[in-house]
Design a protein around this nucleic acid. Structure first.
Lengths: 213, 213
DNA sequence: GAATATTTACCGACCGGTAGGTAAACCGGT
DNA sequence: ACCGGTTTACCTACCGGTCGGTAAATATTC
């Protein structure tokens, strides 16, 4: 069995399994999990079906591995940097910005996380769900910290967290890297909309550089 | 052949086909289109597969019919009322509010519209895509009207429209009618967040009752 | 109003096709 | 000679969809 079939150091390794995960993620993202056959994935890798099965244990395992990699990516690129920031407003901004940035770049793998969890076995699904929940709670706690300082609007923190998540996750569905909009413009705008939707408007005293129109 | 296999007057009729569409929509929404077999749908209706095929022409046709009904619902409950409103801010509020309200009620059928369009034939998919696009453009034009009056933040109207859509559509994924949050509270909060995210803050002159913390 | 004809609403059995998955043979490098 | 990597050939299971048939309701004729 080659290298590490499931540990995946940081995100996608550069070895064969890494390439397999990435390719599979792209195809599954484009066509949907059920609609994608193992033969198709194998063909895209210049392999036959059993050739692919040499590297992966099964279709569900493959999906699970991809999802774990995606969650790792989310943790390392979004949660870890954000967790270092004390100020809740600034932390929120980093979460939104980095998550959005991630989605405009490595859309395929990340987007699978959104849907396609029906393809997992019960235990695997619970595992992924737990990690998703952890991310959600991280976001929600940030909003509650904001609330404690009177800087969050008068909305339920759960509703607010889901609204943010929806706005950001949705990017994967519509953003086209070859389209009119530059990825950084999208990230900027979404971040601004999200922050403005959450924060209670600062009445007069403008500290630091305000978002000028 | 029974009544109207595809015309569907306003939304879901109360006849047999209506019940079939609703049931099928719920199951397909829960399990995904590909993962749902016609036998399962039939079983849920206390029918055998051929019994179900007496009412529907095929699996794809069934999905298409459900989607058309869902789009009709969106048009009649969201677009039509909103189209009557001249003021762009008020119109935007109605769009968000009514769309959110629809999702907290008849989630199953509406949510299918989001994903699952891969199950359609090329022509059917194009037809649904066209109607979706029309809705999106309706939303975007509203934002541009807002922009023309200097009431929209300095963001791209396309990005803004997608962000709104994501936030609202996402409700179908997380809202549980049997959960802690009352549907109207969710609708209210999402509407507030969405509006606040779009509108440039009114500097001084506060008209009407402002949202006080 | 009884007998007949026709439609409605459905079922059991089955077919063609395809997908996930496997066993065993094969091959190239060291 | 061996072992990582790959292929050919195949099995089983299931799914969409059809065919022939049928019990009950409905319409039609006399």
């Amino acid at each position: 069995m080659p290298s590490s079939p499931s540990t995946s150091r940081t995100l996608f390794d550069d070895d064969r399994t890494g390439i397999i995960y990435r390719t599979a993620a792209r195809i599954i993202y484009e066509k949907g999990f059920d609609a994608t056959s193992m033969s198709e994935i194998a063909e895209a890798l210049d392999l036959t079906k059993p050739g692919l099965y040499y590297y992966v244990k099964g279709k569900k395992e493959l999906l699970y591995s991809i999802m774990r990699c995606a969650m790792n990516l989310l943790d390392s690129d979004v949660v870890e940097p954000a967790a270092l920031i004390a100020d809740p407003e600034e932390r929120l901004r980093v979460i939104i910005r980095e998550h959005a940035r991630l989605l405009t770049n490595e859309a395929g793998a990340l987007a699978i996380l959104i849907d396609e969890d029906g393809g997992l076995s019960a235990e695997h699904r619970e595992d992924i769900a737990k990690r998703k929940r952890a991310y959600f709670e991280f976001l929600r706690r940030t909003l509650e910290a904001l609330e404690a300082e009177g800087r969050l609007r008068e909305v339920d923190s759960t509703v607010a967290a889901f609204s943010l998540l929806g706005m950001v996750m949705w990017i994967a569905r519509w953003y086209d890297s070859k389209g009119r909009l530059a990825s950084e413009k999208v990230v900027q705008d979404v971040t601004e909309i999200a922050l403005a939707g959450m924060l209670v408007p600062r009445s007069k005293e403008s500290m630091g550089l305000a978002q000028v129109q």
